[in-house]
Computed example of a mutant assay.
Amino acid sequence: MIAETKFSKIVALWKEDKKQYVKRSTFAAYTLLIENHILPTFGEMALVEEQDVQTFVFRKLNEGLSHKTIKDILIVLKMILRFGAKNQMTEYRQIDIKFPTERDKHSIDILNRSHQKQIMEYIRLHFTFKNLGIYICLSAGMRIGEICALTWDDLDVENGIIHVRKTIQRIYVIEEHRKYTEVILDTPKTKNSIREIPMTKNLLKMIRPIKKIVNGNFYVLTNEPKPTEPRTYRNYYKQFMQSLGLPLMKFHGLRHSFATRCIESKCDYKTVSVLLGHSNISTTLNLYVHPNLEQKKRCMEQMSRLLR
């Protein structure tokens, strides 16, 4: 029989161990979920049972947390429980959690084609380095942290390629007696996020003359040795959209708009997935491939023709 250890003690030991193997940004994300959700509920327990976790899930749903956030919390919780069992601190319990069916379909922010053309045309006529970042996102589908980390050397005009190999993000650091945030320059989200994106002809035309006079080590958005961080750039983007009288849309909507235009252009899904740096094609399919009524009718027509 295993002598049960208080869950908060297992958490502390798991964090000590995990810190050695994961990126700082990943560890910061784990720590935030632990401090805000896991410890307040399970910290004082000696044994975490399936029913405790199921009750926790229903409560978090009622508090308005999304299925995805709750599933992220459960991934961390299960890692800690497996660590505790492996190190003889608690008994291993199979935890099988059920979620109520999601009735609402989550829509994603996308620019319509005329708004996208309006933005791109405006940037061509009103060039600034920060505006160029918005143009690149619409032309290459990059994430905000990736665009903030982009230097002129990452833009290869000889081969017409954008090299995505870094990201900037603000992480929450929770130490024993203090909490603070810190901006870090890191490798991108996953190994698939390290990628090469071909530039469009219009983007290349815009960048080629600039590349002759800029310092390759400087950041694209600032044209200085110091970058801008995502939070600051989001604020700039918000003001930019307001100045054009366009509907407010999250910055990530620029990436969604790029992906949607690719799908609309009949690009194959695997290529779109690689351009976006998704770790698997199912992410791309689930997000962007939703046949419209016209496509469904065409499918039914083709099927019935086969039977004639």
Rank of each mutant, 00 (worst) to 15 (best):
D153M: 12
I123C: 09
P188G: 04
F56L: 02
L204R: 04
I174L: 12
L293M: 09
K130P: 01
V57P: 06
S273E: 07
Q94G: 06
N202C: 07
K205L: 07
K238L: 10
L307S: 14
L287I: 15
H115V: 11
Y180K: 05
K130F: 06
A12Y: 11
Q169C: 11
P188D: 04
Q51M: 08
Y236F: 15
F218I: 08
Q94P: 02
G253E: 08
G64Q: 02
I263M: 10
P247V: 13
I134W: 13
K296V: 12
D156V: 05
F42V: 03
E264F: 08
H37R: 03
E176C: 01
V22P: 02
K15P: 00
K6W: 01
I171Y: 07
G216M: 10
H252P: 00
A3M: 12
L65N: 07
K98C: 07
D52I: 03
T181C: 07
I10H: 02
L244H: 06
L125N: 09
M199I: 02
I108A: 10
L306Q: 11
H126Q: 07
Q94Y: 09
K98I: 14
T190M: 05
V272K: 03
V173C: 11
P100R: 14
V272M: 01
V274K: 15
G141A: 02
D153L: 10
H115R: 11
H115T: 12
N131W: 07
T228Y: 14
H256A: 08
D96F: 12
R24F: 06
L132R: 08
R103N: 10
T232D: 10
A85W: 04
Q54R: 03
Y122H: 15
M249Y: 08
N87W: 14
W152E: 04
R305C: 05
L204D: 05
E175W: 09
H67T: 02
E301F: 05
V11P: 00
R234V: 05
I73S: 03
G141H: 01
S66P: 08
S257P: 06
Q295R: 09
K238M: 09
F258G: 00
L185F: 10
R305I: 06
Q118L: 13
S243R: 12
R93I: 12
N202I: 06
H278G: 03
L32A: 13
I197G: 00
P230Y: 03
D109K: 13
N286M: 08
T222R: 05
K238Q: 12
L254D: 00
I70Q: 07
P230A: 00
E4A: 07
L276E: 07
G253L: 06
D156R: 08
G216I: 11
Y92M: 10
K270T: 07
L77F: 01
I168D: 05
L306G: 06
N87I: 03
V274H: 14
